[in-house]
Amino acid sequence: MGGLFSERRSLLIGIGATVALVVFLIVVGEEKSLVIGLTQGSAYGMVALGLALIYKSSGVFNFAQGEFGTVALYVLYLLDIKGNYWLAIIGALAAAGLMGFATERLVVRPLFEAPRVILLVATAGVALLAIGVELWFADAQAKPVAKAFSRNDRITVFDVQITDQRLWLIVTLAALAVLLGLFFTRTNLGLAIIGASQEPTATELVGISVRRLSSFTWVLAAVLGGLAAVIAIPDLGSFGPGAMTSNYLIPAFTAAVLGGMTSLPGAFVGGVLIGIIQSVATSAPLFQDGGELAIPGVPSTLIVFVVLLVVLVARPQGLLGKRA
């Protein structure tokens, strides 16, 4: 029962479905939405990765995942004014990791035996606390955030310019996919985490500290959340308190659910799928202004809700997962 090996077949199905969707969209002339969706979906995938990682190792729906990212953004904003951008990025990731560590130690560990719904409420409390502290230390004003790469017209696919920043996001995501895949199948630490998630008692018996692994997983997930934020948000230009929670958390959860909640590759594929569905559906006539039956407001929120509802009602185990 290797965590990732048994998912290989369903992963192939997922990738096959994605490729079929890509070909279909190109045939019907929606290739622009495809490219936009892919770049947007990569960001969802990265947040979803952290969610799946924590759910896999401790069975918690981590509602603070988005705020790990926002805190990293604030630290990046503070450090970047004063000095080197890349050092600031490292500082931001360190801050996210520290917050993940503190959350695990102070909130998750004391509630180790509590039902999972209680942990969900607790992590939601952590998220609200982070938003409150952000409002307190900064203010409600949006803050600018610098890009790592500023060139915008290096690559053009189907008439859509892909900024270098987006390119960096996609490359980082792909690299992370490979690295994490190797980490969880080839290293002792990775295998120990998989083991602890499947059989905590047996893992303790062979001399591995499940609690220390739990700390490590939370730090890793928080750093991933921070990385997603500092790479994806600069393309929007600015951010405010709770930026990652309001824009990314729910699409990322939907992506993770689509991927079966426990599957890391599933989280990637789910994120990209959500991004594509969103960008295709947003351009549907139903959401265009002036139409008789136009749906008001932000289309993407409604689309994510519908996808989530359909997936959970029709196939609760997710497209790629074994069981929910």
Binding site: R116, V117, L120, I250, V298, L312
Partner: peptide, 19 residues
């Protein structure tokens, strides 16, 4: 449980952004 919480959260955002 957790999944129902997720659906209600998503519905809350739909109310906020659409309704």
């Amino acid at each position: 449980g957790l999944y129902f919480a997720l659906i209600t959260l998503s519905y809350g955002l739909v109310a906020q952004d659409n309704i």
